[in-house]
């Protein structure tokens, strides 16, 4: 979710097999630099595999280029890496959020499982509760939210949406990314 000179990204913590909850401590948002974040929904094994893969790729990028990766560059890396698996895809729908290191401009985008990028100016949703999230974000989001308001908006949107989805919830992680500052908050959420 985009705010004024800041972005926020959040995920729930549930890991389940169909209706059976296995774990309530399975974060789906990963950090790849000072202000580059990746959220992954979908098949749990691919969430881990893909997050590990990008940790490797981003670390190699940093060593080779002696600089941190920019969110837009990272988004294109995600896209090309997923499309590489066009005919045997990873079953994930990633979301990238971050601030451009040069201009400080917020950047968000989403992908399908084969890497088609969906650029957005406002918000990106993904996962089993995406329809509920669309509804909540459409009604709660407004332009130029400050970091605190953005946190409140994204948290309320996420919690309300996952409460209407049996397959999501069980706590949440919320990251608010500002210039030179990232705030990570744990929302306990409903545990039922």
């Amino acid at each position: 979710m985009v705010g004024k000179d800041c972005v926020a990204i959040a995920c729930d913590l549930r890991l389940g097999l169909q209706a059976l909850t296995v774990s309530n401590n399975f974060p789906k948002v990963f950090q790849y630099g000072d202000n580059v974040f990746l959220g992954l929904t979908g098949l749990a094994t691919d969430v881990s595999t893909v997050s590990d893969l990008f940790r490797y790729k981003v670390n190699m990028y940093r060593l080779r280029e002696e600089r941190a990766i920019a969110p837009s560059t990272f988004a294109n890396l995600v896209s090309s890496s997923l499309y590489e698996r066009r005919f045997g895809p990873y079953f994930v729908s990633p979301v990238v959020a971050g601030l451009d290191p040069k201009t400080g401009a917020p950047f968000i985008c989403g992908f399908d499982s084969i890497g088609c990028i969906d650029f957005a100016k406002d918000f990106i949703v993904s996962g089993t509760a995406s329809e509920q999230l669309f509804g909540m974000c459409e009604s709660l989001w407004e332009p130029n939210l400050g970091p605190e308001d953005l946190f409140e908006t994204i948290s309320q949107a996420l919690l309300s949406a996952v409460d209407r989805d049996a397959l999501s919830g069980w706590g949440a992680h919320v990251y608010v990314i500002e210039k030179n500052k990232v705030t990570k908050r744990l929302l306990k959420g409903r545990q039922d």
């Binding site: 280029e65 890396l77 090309s80």
Partner: peptide, 12 residues
């Protein structure tokens, strides 16, 4: 270019 959709820096 095909990975990052940008051209390489000179050193690369």
């Amino acid at each position: 270019k095909r990975v990052y959709n940008e051209y390489p820096p000179t050193r690369i």
